[in-house]
């Protein structure tokens, strides 16, 4: 019997911030959990990220940002997804994000926010949970 296909994920770094340690680590632990993870590299525009997500047919986009520009840039990614009719693609995020911004991001449509120090297992489990939820919804 053929292997069931695995959901593909995208890890992207929007904006100008070049700190990619967290993004790469999360990409690696998701790979270790059996996902196929498309990595965009640093300094990507929301347009590049959304176009990539669509062409790669990913189930979710993870955005990492340490510069504090998350409200503007995460918002832009969500907006573009909606305009492309791809709002079913989940968006999660991480980085230097003050707790007070988390409710605002969630309201915007960010499914989960991971701040520094979140254990790998928790990240993987949350994403898996969200993907299952999305399928059964």
């Amino acid at each position: 019997m053929e292997q069931p296909p695995k959901p593909r994920l995208l890890i992207g770094k929007p904006g100008l911030d070049g700190h990619d340690r967290g993004a790469k680590y999360v990409a690696q632990i998701l790979r270790d959990a059996g996902f196929e993870v498309v990595y965009t590299g640093i300094r990507r525009s929301p347009e590049q990220i959304v176009d990539t997500a669509i062409q790669e047919d990913v189930a979710a986009i993870g955005l990492s940002l340490l510069s504090g520009a998350h409200n503007a840039l995460f918002g832009r990614v969500l907006e573009l997804l909606r305009s492309r009719g791809a709002e079913d693609i989940l968006v999660f995020g991480g980085g230097t994000i003050p707790p007070k911004d988390v409710p605002r991001l969630k309201e915007m449509g960010v499914a989960a926010v991971f701040t520094p120090g979140t254990p790998a297992r928790q990240i993987v489990e949350t994403i898996e949970g969200l993907l299952v939820q999305r399928q059964t919804a």
Binding site: G15, L16, D17, R43, S45, S67, A69, N71, A72
Partner: peptide
Amino acid sequence: DLPTQIGYDSDDAMAAGEVGKV
């Protein structure tokens, strides 16, 4: 801030969201 470090003016599209941030 990052636009200054990379060489974009504050009104450049590439600077969106980043002006005065870091």
